[in-house]
């Protein structure tokens, strides 16, 4: 069994309202923070492999709670690289930090989400793989085998395909068919006592240079003009007429 590092990001719960105040998303207005949904599948896949699992997050202090949640379902080691405001980092810096963290754990297998629910980017898994010189498979919805030869199901141009990859490798997970395990009382109690290895980027000893992109502002999406609403199936032909004449889409 290989040691596995799982990259977990804490994000506003998908049900949380995203409020922009001034020129930034107002984090104070987020009522619930959760583990990013695809990361839950990455963690579940790691738990299914068994062995030593290090849950790694990079983010502000509040992210500790998510690491404890990961311990409650079975993550064996917890690692927190404290960065107060992730929006000050570019994709290359995030990949450098997380790759250095993975190297520190000694794990040769890295599981992560296909994209985070806040950035929606999908840059980190392949970026970390590049920094580590590893193979990478993204959008994985089924995984079998072990580090000596994983078989991963991913979409292909003509449908789906099963590809083999072996350690060192990064697997970025899509939603999977498996149920996510829920913590039990014992798990929750144990997790509260679990130590979190906390460090700064400097402690990691990785030079991340300076960001090459800067965030100017965040804004609410453009409001759509109010739509037209019709009652009853009789209106269908009117709408079809409008789709042709007004919208010109059919």
């Amino acid at each position: 069994m290989a040691d596995i590092a799982v990259l977990l990001k804490q994000v506003p719960d998908t049900n949380a309202k995203i409020v922009v105040s001034g020129d930034r998303v107002d984090e104070g207005a987020v009522n619930k923070w959760s583990m990013s949904p695809y990361d839950e599948y990455a963690l579940e896949a790691a738990l299914a492999q068994g062995g030593s699992i290090t849950a790694i997050t990079c983010g502000p202090d509040r992210a500790k709670k998510m690491l404890t949640d990961a311990a409650a379902v079975g993550a064996t080691n917890l690692m927190h690289i404290v960065v107060d405001d992730l929006t000050t980092l570019d994709s290359n810096q995030v990949a450098s930090i997380l790759a250095a963290a993975v190297e520190k754990t000694g794990a040769s297998v890295v599981f992560c989400g296909k994209q985070a629910a806040d950035t929606n980017a999908g840059s980190t898994g392949p970026g970390v793989a590049e920094k580590l010189g590893s193979g990478c498979v993204t959008m994985v919805s089924e995984l079998s085998g072990d580090s000596s030869g994983f078989l991963a199901l991913r979409p292909s141009a003509t449908g789906m395909e099963r590809v083999s990859v072996s350690a060192p490798c990064v697997i970025a997970f899509d939603k999977m068919g498996t149920e996510l395990r829920r913590p039990n009382v014992k798990g929750i109690m144990m997790a509260k006592k679990k130590a979190i290895e906390t460090m700064s980027v400097e402690d990691l000893g990785v030079d991340i240079g300076s960001a090459s992109v800067t965030l100017d502002n965040q804004s609410p999406p453009a409001e759509k003009p109010a739509g037209q609403k019709f009652e009853g199936a009789e209106s269908v032909s009117t709408v079809v007429g409008k789709l042709r004449e007004e919208a010109k889409v059919i």
Binding site: V25, S219, P220
Partner: peptide, 11 residues
């Protein structure tokens, strides 16, 4: 970002 719940502008 946030699945379209906000837009970010970046230099």
């Amino acid at each position: 970002i946030y699945s379209g719940k906000a837009i970010e502008t970046i230099t």
